[in-house]
């Protein structure tokens, strides 16, 4: 067994993610696009950080670099002290498999597999022992309240149940970092709220470290900290602190207005 799920809250704060002047350029020398322009920030363990920006601000490119889906042009990205920009081949796959969890907007469950198999798959591809898989699936699903739907197929489940199964799959591997790319982008407001509450729960109850990319102020207001990007650079950064979510939302809107972008204020 890996470390227990419900960690105590007064645990020492660790630096999970550290970006050092990361750059990502596209195009040729004559027509260079700086999608990400010397960005540096850190994310501590158990943090819930949102990266906000209009389309073209470079937020998705940045997330893709952190997820090792894309390669940086310059700079370094450390995940729990390890420079992931240097990883290659099998090590890269293993990193993605073992250290990252993904939350997708349309759940991305495999529809030929039952809930149990969907959750177990994340561990099975890490070659975890089958008996341990069974135990861990039972544990995480009872914590998320989906024990009863484990043997159902995605088409037999409600949206909320699917969301929980997807979350269970994202955190069962005990990832250092959970990444969410525009998780509410194509959802109706009810489903979007459900997903965001789910992320919040993962962060508060399971101490998951979450990095979410969004252009939606409402979604961002669920985070503890929001980093604003404009033209590939960090424009501003605000923390929620002890404010209510409504107050935090208003603060975000203020920054967005200052940004003058086309950001969706909902």
């Amino acid at each position: 067994m890996k470390k227990a799920k419900n960690k105590v809250n007064n645990q020492t704060v660790r630096q999970i993610l550290k970006l050092e002047s990361v750059e990502k350029y596209y195009g040729s020398r004559s027509a260079l696009t700086k999608a990400v322009d010397r960005i540096s920030f850190t994310v501590d363990s158990s943090e819930f950080v949102a990266i906000m920006g209009a389309s073209g601000s470079g937020k998705t490119t940045l997330l893709n670099c952190i997820a090792t889906i894309d390669r940086v042009t310059a700079g370094k990205i450390y995940v729990d002290g390890e420079d992931i920009t240097r990883l290659k081949g099998e090590k890269l796959n293993r990193f993605r498999r073992e250290e990252l969890g993904f939350v997708f907007q349309d759940f991305n469950l495999l529809d030929t597999l039952t809930a149990r198999e969907n959750i177990a798959l994340a561990l099975a591809i890490q070659k975890v022992h089958p008996l341990e898989i069974t135990d861990r699936v039972e544990k995480v699903s009872s914590e998320l309240g989906i024990s009863k739907v484990l043997d159902k197929f995605p088409y037999q489940m409600s949206g909320g149940q699917k969301q929980r199964v997807a979350s269970a799959r994202a955190i069962i591997t005990d990832p250092k970092l959970v990444l969410a790319d525009e998780p509410t982008g194509a959802l109706d407001s009810r489903s979007a709220r459900m997903l965001l509450e789910q992320l919040e729960e993962l962060n508060q109850r399971f101490d998951s470290t979450i990095l979410m990319v969004t252009h939606d102020a409402f979604a961002a207001s669920y985070a503890k900290r929001v980093i604003f990007l404009k033209d590939g650079k960090i424009f501003n950064e605000i923390r929620r602190g002890d404010h209510s979510r409504k107050e935090f939302f208003d603060q975000i809107i203020d920054v967005v207005t200052a940004l003058g972008g086309d950001t969706n204020v909902l």
Binding site: L110, T112, L113, E117, A120, L121, L123, A124, I125, K127, P130, L131, I133, T134
Partner: peptide, 16 residues
């Protein structure tokens, strides 16, 4: 035990 090893579950479900 084979069922939860690697992609076996997925492969078998796809085939099924």
């Amino acid at each position: 035990k084979l069922y939860n090893r690697g992609l076996n579950a997925f492969t078998l479900r796809q085939f099924s």
